[in-house]
């Protein structure tokens, strides 16, 4: 298409705009690279000293210059998976309710309410967790669960004054639910109405329609959403540090204290006394970076496969 010739000032302006926007985009890319570089650089000293043994070492003793992330990786994994196992089904169920069942008026109120739960800062959720939720858990929920399913080692005797991996897992659940709920609602909204009608015209009940049509059609999107939620749970520092109790051992019972990568980082970074401790904390940060990027890339990859399948449809 032949464009009219532009005046010089226009051409210069165009050039400037293109360079400015291009530069901004380059900065975003650079930022990501810089973050990774900075974090890996910071962990250099610790990596030199401990190597990959850092991942399995379970001692963390600043006074003895001994650092290992084993306990923290365990705590991160346990609380993250715990949160995902609760939050994914609950969030998806909320998405189904909002997308398929709620009358428009109810949806218009509850949808934003659920999303606003995600807007409450983690420091407040964590504060609420340690002062309100954790005492309640110790007094009521934990003994109850112990007496009914106590044969599972996860649900041992209530131990602490409330701070526990159990509390941390629940707090993370609360933080992940709104993420999964709002994305899965949007996913269900994209399922063509014709498919839903096709299913009900075949004499299917609502649940049969959900199980047979809605869930399979959105499966990979839901999986991607769950990974996003997991990534959020694994990386959360503040709320977890408030309720998990900064434990130093690997315990099978969820009612014991524990600690996660992000939580240890938030807890000790300000007070790190020497270079090795700071570097070890950076090492934790590097692990978090890898986990964060990994879960996100995985979600992207699943999401893209989903998009490709759709495009072929």
């Amino acid at each position: 298409m032949a464009r009219p010739r532009l005046r010089i000032s226009d051409r210069v302006g165009d050039r400037l705009l293109l360079s400015a926007t291009g530069l901004a985009s380059a900065i975003a890319v650079l930022l990501l690279v810089l973050i990774a570089w900075q974090v890996f650089k910071g962990s250099g000293t610790a990596f030199h000293k401990f190597g990959f043994g850092f991942l399995t070492g379970t001692t963390w003793k600043p006074n003895f210059n001994q650092y290992g992330a084993g306990t923290l990786l365990f705590g991160t994994f346990v609380t993250g998976v715990f949160a995902l196992f609760l939050a994914a089904p609950i969030g998806i169920a909320i998405g189904l309710y909002l997308s398929l069942m709620a009358p428009p008026r109810v949806r218009a109120i509850i949808g934003p309410v659920v999303e606003m739960l995600a807007a409450i800062p983690s420091v407040i959720i964590g504060f609420w967790g340690i002062l309100v939720l954790a005492p309640f858990l110790v007094k009521h929920a934990e003994p109850q669960l112990h007496s009914t399913v106590g044969f599972i080692p996860l649900f041992g005797l209530p131990q602490t004054n409330g701070a526990s991996m159990f509390a941390a897992g629940l707090i993370l659940t609360i933080m992940v639910i709104p993420i999964v709920a709002s994305i899965s609602r949007d996913l269900f909204d994209t399922v063509p109405r014709e498919l839903q009608e096709g299913a009900s015209a075949l004499g299917a009940t609502r649940w049969e329609m959900i199980r047979g049509v809605m869930l399979p059609t959105t499966a990979s999107g839901l999986a991607a959403t769950s990974f996003l939620g997991l990534g959020r749970a694994l990386g959360e520092a503040i709320a977890v540090t408030q309720v998990i109790g900064a434990g130093t051992k690997i315990n099978t019972s969820l009612y014991e204290t524990g600690d996660t990568l992000a939580s240890r980082l938030a807890n000790q970074f300000q007070n790190a006394t020497d270079q090795l401790q700071t570097s070890s904390l950076f090492y934790l940060g590097a692990l978090l970076l890898i986990i964060g990027l990994g879960s996100n890339l995985l979600a992207q990859w699943i999401g893209r496969r989903f998009a490709v399948q759709k495009a072929h449809a």
Binding site: P192, E194, L195, E197, G198, A199, S200, A201, L202, G203, A204, T205, G212, V213, P216, T217, Q309, A313
Partner: peptide, 19 residues
């Protein structure tokens, strides 16, 4: 559900399930 089980419907736009 019983009504639609007895009275089936085919729509304007083909709408096979993604199965």
């Amino acid at each position: 559900v019983e009504v639609r089980r007895r009275i089936g419907m085919v729509f304007q736009k083909p709408n096979p399930f993604p199965k």
